[in-house]
Write a protein that binds this DNA or RNA. Structure first.
Length: 607
DNA sequence: CTAGGGTTAG
């Protein structure tokens, strides 16, 4: 509710005594208002009504107060969906015959825009006599912002071009709107057209690029900002760029940013700390994550959650559970994400009973209703442990209607434990929910391939093609000397293709001599690429591994990031390679980390 | 008026 306090007392909006002689403020009016702002959102409605009634007298005296109320409402009531309340204030203002000066109009338009009542906002805007005057930037900005939030970009652009004058807010709002709607090129064009950029412009770009999956570009943007342009970042910029590092696994960039934070003496608040911890954890440096966690003094529930997640994805269940308990002891109540993290830790480690205990505690002790995500983890928990019947029973009994993810979790379990009967049943559910989803076909053909029923494999493949379902291509990257190199399955496009493939062959042969047996059941992991022959040999993670081995000196840890689960065959080969070449290999797949060392993986093959 | 941190399955 901090936000409410801030909007209730915008310094610039408070009237000066000079301009308003009748204004005899109670000592700091905004403070007494902020006390009325409820801590519990469920009570907000009642409190706001009280506030409005209490303000009636003030309304007659001071127009500016109606604006304060409107601002409070546009940020609070909106979240509660109380459209009528907003209308009531609007009506009240009209009834009292208050003048509709710029500020009140801006607040009203903003309020309606945020309530997704864009038509009302636009109407108020159109009726506004002052909109073509100078000083009307705020009014235009809130409308542009509203259009962006509703995805009506043409209108936003049109307004942007028509407005009499623009400020940073106008440019930044539109750039943000374009980014959030996937119009990256347009946003870049607009950004480059800015004569002067402020820190919000840069941050919006960094975050926007990352939002559209262009993490490397986001990093480039950030370093360009501080190195070339000499602009100073703030904590919001840092959080955005660190999140891009985490998503792409760019450890070196992340460490550079960490140094930048330390040498520029940025305040280590909860958000920056959390972003750093998350970055280290997702880049494979769980010890550094833990160190930063200790150094972060202001911890909130998110800080604890990323740490728990970190331990979970690195296979340190005990640490994860300890962390969870410690958080509770510190007096921080776990929220639904914290529970997701701790449940995930249990599922990765096969701790079925503990996981179920947490699941119950969530409802009983904290009255958090389990979401679909929690249920998916429970299905996964049973499924990985091979308790398929329990998993199915859980799905049938759960309060929510099982979605694609839930059935998908059970399907993976069927695959892992080779239960074809149940897999068939589940695949029907999957295809009902998403007829075009390639995953089901790939799953199914994998199951048949796993047990060697090749006619069925062929049938599924054909039906997949008929339905026009395409599989996401496997994509891996490896960091070599601070630069990321990407590979897709069957990649022939890389400039060192020849070298890579011969290294791959050499590795495979050596591993074979030491007992590596290619696991053909994984051959259809990527059904599309399989047609290019050698499917097993050319999964993207293997190419990345080979490239990393060629280009780095012995002793350097190899870090590979993959966009899907690592395939079982690649997993087995990596174990051999880690032993034969005495290399530590860290693979991050979509779910978790695999630390290969001396022929052993940290996941203990439980995945 | 404009920017930010953790979230399932594959």
């Amino acid at each position: 509710m901090k936000k409410a306090m801030r909007v209730l007392a915008p310094k610039s909006a408070l009237p000066s005594k000079k301009n308003n002689p009748i204004f005899s403020p109670p000592p700091k009016p905004h403070q007494s208002y902020s006390k009325i702002i409820p801590q519990n959102p469920n009570q907000a409605e009642t409190h706001f009504i009280t506030l409005i009634h209490a303000s009636k007298t003030i309304l007659q005296l001071q127009q500016i107060h109606s604006q304060l109320i409107l601002q409070a409402m546009s940020s609070n009531i909106v979240g509660l969906g109380d459209k009528w309340l907003g209308g009531m204030v609007h009506g009240g203002i009209l009834k009292m015959g208050l003048e509709f000066d710029g500020f009140v109009r801006v607040s009203l338009v903003d309020m309606y825009a945020k309530m997704e009542l864009l038509s009302l906002a636009l109407q108020l805007f159109d009726e506004s006599p002052e909109r073509n005057k100078l000083d009307s930037v705020l009014l235009w900005n809130v409308v542009i912002n509203g259009c962006c939030k509703s995805g009506i970009l043409e209108k936003a652009v049109e307004l942007f071009e028509a407005m009499p004058e623009r400020n940073f807010g106008s440019w930044n709002s539109l750039i943000n709107g374009l980014m959030r709607n996937g119009k990256v090129d347009k946003a870049v064009e607009l950004f480059e057209g800015m004569v002067e950029k402020n820190v919000v412009s840069w941050t919006t770009m960094v975050h926007g690029l990352s939002l559209n999956g262009m993490h490397e570009k986001a990093l480039e943007m950030f370093f360009n900002m501080i190195e070339e342009e000499g602009a100073r970042a703030n904590d919001l910029t840092l959080v955005s760029v660190l999140s891009a590092c985490a998503k792409t696994g760019a450890l070196e960039a992340g460490m550079k940013i960490h140094k930048y934070i330390l040498s520029n003496k940025f305040r280590f608040n909860a958000a920056v700390g959390t972003a750093l911890i998350d970055m280290y954890a997702k880049c494979g440096q769980i010890q550094s994550a833990s160190q930063v966690f200790r150094d972060t003094k202001e911890k909130d529930v998110r800080t604890w959650s990323v740490m728990i997640w970190g331990w979970a994805i690195h296979g340190s269940v005990e640490q994860a559970l300890q962390c969870f308990e410690k958080m509770k002891l510190t007096g921080i109540e776990p929220d639904e994400v914290a529970f997701l993290a701790v449940l995930t830790a249990c599922s990765h480690a096969g701790l079925v009973d503990e996981g179920l205990k947490f699941f119950d505690s969530m409802k009983l002790d904290y009255s958090i209703e389990p979401t679909m995500k929690h249920c998916a983890v429970i299905v996964d928990l049973y499924g990985r442990a091979g308790q398929l019947d329990e998993a199915l029973r859980f799905i049938q009994c759960m309060a929510l209607t099982p979605d694609f993810v839930i059935w998908g979790a059970l399907f993976s379990a069927c695959r892992a434990h080779k239960n074809i009967e149940m897999a068939k049943y589940v695949s029907e559910k999957l295809l009902q929910l998403e007829p075009k989803h390639s995953g089901s076909y790939v799953f199914m053909s994998n199951i048949y391939a796993g047990v060697g029923i090749w006619e069925e494999v062929e049938r599924v493949r054909t039906s997949m093609k008929d339905k026009g379902a395409a599989k996401d291509p496997g994509l891996s990257h490896v960091e070599v000397h601070g630069k990321l190199h990407s590979f897709v399955a069957g990649d022939q496009a890389h400039m060192h293709t020849k070298e890579i493939y011969s290294k791959l062959e050499e590795m495979t042969n050596r591993a074979r001599e030491h007992g590596y047996i290619p696991e053909t059941e994984w051959v259809l992991h990527n059904i599309e690429e399989e047609e290019k022959e050698d499917a097993l040999g050319t999964h993207s993670e293997k190419l990345a591994l080979a490239f990393g081995l060629i280009r780095t000196s012995p002793g350097v840890v190899l870090r590979i990031v993959k966009n899907l689960r690592i395939c079982g065959d690649c997993h087995s080969l990596m174990k051999h390679v880690s032993k034969l070449s005495q290399r530590e290999i860290v693979v991050r797949d979509i779910k978790r980390f695999h630390h290969f060392k001396d022929g052993i993986c940290s996941c203990q093959d439980y995945w």
